[in-house]
């Protein structure tokens, strides 16, 4: 079970990262809704999505750091906003996680509403 979850997170991380590069930030809620629709019978798919989105965006930040002075940029940008660099990084990651979590829950709820609860779903979704 754990291995399956980790695999899901890994694949979803790559998916979030690639989709963000191609589509921009909208990729996160879009992909998460889709994830919610597809995993209506899964256990806590919203947590998987949130973790993957956070990791996906972190991955992109790390990749950017290899391409240019992201520390200086974070310092300047955070300074403009009156926050610390770390808070700005945290804000970006938290934003992706919040979008992914909420979009998955909403997507899953929509799926459940449309198709009804699947076998074994009752009692699983608190």
């Amino acid at each position: 079970m754990m291995r399956r979850t980790l695999l899901q997170i890994l694949l979803l991380t790559v998916a979030f990262a690639l989709a963000t590069v191609i589509m921009g930030w909208w990729a996160v809620p879009a992909l998460a809704v889709l994830w919610g629709l597809l995993t209506r019978s899964e256990r806590h798919p919203e947590l998987v999505a949130a973790a993957a989105a956070g990791l996906g965006w972190s991955l992109l930040l790390v990749w950017t750091a290899t391409q240019g002075p992201i520390g200086e940029l974070a310092s300047r940008a955070a300074g403009v906003m009156g926050i610390s660099s770390l808070a700005l990084v945290g804000m970006a990651i938290a934003f992706s996680m919040a979008l992914a979590w909420s979009a998955t829950v909403v997507g899953r709820t929509g799926a459940l509403g449309a198709w009804g609860r699947g076998k074994g779903e009752e009692g699983r979704v608190a």
């Binding site: 990262a17 590069v21 992109l60 950017t64 002075p69 992201i70 940029l73 940008a77 992706s96």
Partner: peptide, 20 residues
């Protein structure tokens, strides 16, 4: 808008890739 701003691939972070 927060989305395009915080987007790590295309938002403000991307500016670091063209700094030099």
């Amino acid at each position: 808008p927060f989305g395009p701003f915080l987007d790590p691939a295309n938002g403000v972070w991307a500016v670091a890739r063209s700094a030099e």
